[in-house]
């Protein structure tokens, strides 16, 4: 069973990472999208996504790293169905 980990706070990814398998997914939303702009947020997870409109809202879309796939809301909804369950790490 693969889970989609939804992260909305940049400080929470490191807390969640030990629980995330390489076939799980990570979706960065809200303030956590800044992690997609940094080389330092490299993970072992193969499925890394970041919400594009939250990157745009923070003026950092141009700095996003290629290792994070930018997604819109329709794709966000699809991802919650692609993965067996979603876990919002608060």
């Amino acid at each position: 069973m693969n889970s989609l980990y939804i992260i909305n706070n940049p400080q929470k990814l490191s807390e969640a990472l030990p629980f995330i398998g390489e076939n799980d997914g990570i979706l960065l939303i809200e303030d956590a999208v800044v992690l997609a702009t940094s080389d330092s947020a490299q993970t072992h997870c193969k499925n890394q996504f970041a919400l594009e409109e939250d990157l745009i809202a923070r003026g950092v879309k141009d700095k996003s790293q290629a290792s994070w796939e930018l997604v819109d809301y329709p794709r966000f909804v699809e991802l919650t169905l692609t993965f067996d369950k979603s876990i919002t790490w608060l």
Partner: peptide, 20 residues
């Protein structure tokens, strides 16, 4: 004090638009 309500409304609108 957070963006979560906005994100939730946008997610709700989108899933309804998709026919869910």
């Amino acid at each position: 004090s957070s963006q979560g309500q906005f994100s939730a409304i946008e997610f709700a609108r989108t899933l309804l638009e998709q026919g869910h």
